Amino acid sequence: MDITRDNFEIHLDYIQESISEASFIAIDAEFSGLHVGAETKDAPNDTHEDRYLKNRRMAEAYDIIQFEPHHPAYYEARTFNFYLFPTTVSVGRAHLDVMGSFQNSALDFLARSKFDFNKWITAGIPYMNPAQVVECRSRRQEELHNGLPDIPVDDKSEQFYRHLDRKLKKWASNPSAPLKLTVSSNYQRRLIHQHVRSLGPRFVSKSYGNHVQVTCISSEQAKTRKMQRITEFENNLKRAEGFSQVIKMLIRARKPLIGHNMFLDLCHLYDQFWERLPPTLVEFQRAIHKLFPRIWDTKNMAEEIFNYGGGDGTHHQLETKLEDLYRDNRHVKWDYPYVRLHNEFNRYESDKFHEAGFDSLITGIVFARLHRRW
């Protein structure tokens, strides 16, 4: 099931229900790039710390653009394919417009895999990390208490402003009817709104074409208006958080998190949806396991089982690429559980390799089979 900003809120409760019912969560992601120059490619003599520092650089440089948590509930698969695009909207006075990087070879690979770039850009789900949420809420609180910062009155507008001041003060002494003020520029419009705010919360200004209308409301109406503005802000903030709500669901659920060769996926997930990656591998291990206590990597599992023996006294050599494991698993005579697609999730009845949704689905299938031999 493809999830975009158009249907995200509609399906959010069902996503929560699926996560709660899942036996485990398998994930996969597609990125806007991989390597930041040749120095970030794996080398034979890399230590674990070297590998982490390289992944850290790549996670900070590029973004997840398609993310897939796949939820096998009793080995019935529900696959959600999320298109992700960073939040660009203004929430209160916080203007979120982050810079992104792209690697041509990564985009070429995605294009050859039939990735829908139009859907990603026009309908990608926004997201924010907790620090951005705190910043937005803090700025909004400041705005509610102190208002917008005043703009200076330039020399050309001194006469206009003095006339405005006299007119508003006279009207405010007996505001029985709305006051209509004609404007000739956006600058004059801003000065009117600014002056009206200084009169107190009962005075409200609203723009209409070439004029601004000023109204006096009751104290009760002023309180209601403030609460409506707070509610509107919180609703906008929740929409701007977008996919980050799903990450919080995964963290709260504390279900086993499954991936294939998922070190880079975890680095991206942490950096993009939680906070900046810590400077060392040890710190990252502590931090990621605090969020997800049970992490399984099917590549490591396969290497343990096939290269070092499968518990039956025999040794096997097998390619541990995800596609190879999936194809071989369908033919090797294992005693493995049956995994079927939920009847509402039939997108992947045929193979779609290198789409995050399909790759997470087969990661879940491979894990279910490997786990029986673990």
Rank of each mutant, 00 (worst) to 15 (best):
A356C: 01
A106C: 04
I27F: 05
P44F: 11
R56Y: 07
D154Q: 13
H35L: 10
Y83R: 09
F24M: 12
E49Q: 00
F243N: 00
E30W: 02
H163V: 15
P130K: 05
F306A: 12
A77E: 09
M249T: 01
S101A: 03
E303A: 10
C267N: 06
F67V: 04
E234R: 06
W171E: 10
A106Q: 04
P152C: 00
N146H: 15
Y338G: 12
L168I: 15
A22I: 08
S105D: 06
A111F: 07
K321D: 10
S350R: 14
L322I: 10
T79W: 00
K170F: 12
Y338M: 14
A302P: 08
H315E: 14
P130M: 05
H193S: 03
E158C: 10
Q213H: 03
E220W: 06
G33D: 02
D271H: 13
N118G: 14
A222Y: 03
L370C: 02
S207D: 10
S198W: 03
E344N: 14
Y74Q: 14
N55E: 02
H70K: 10
K223G: 01
K156T: 14
R137D: 11
S105G: 00
E283F: 02
I15Q: 02
Y83T: 09
F160M: 06
V246R: 00
L179S: 07
I251R: 03
Y270A: 03
I295V: 12
H71R: 11
D116W: 11
A77I: 02
D6C: 04
S105M: 03
L250D: 01
D97Y: 04
G147T: 05
V196F: 04
E68L: 10
L191V: 07
E21M: 11
H354S: 09
M249R: 04
I362C: 03
S207T: 15
L237Q: 01
S360T: 06
L191S: 00
F203V: 02
P126D: 04
R369L: 11
S173M: 12
G242H: 01
F203E: 04
V183Y: 06
S18F: 07
R229A: 01
A253T: 04
L237E: 02
D2V: 12
K255W: 09
I365E: 07
T79Y: 05
T215Y: 06
P337Y: 10
M301H: 02
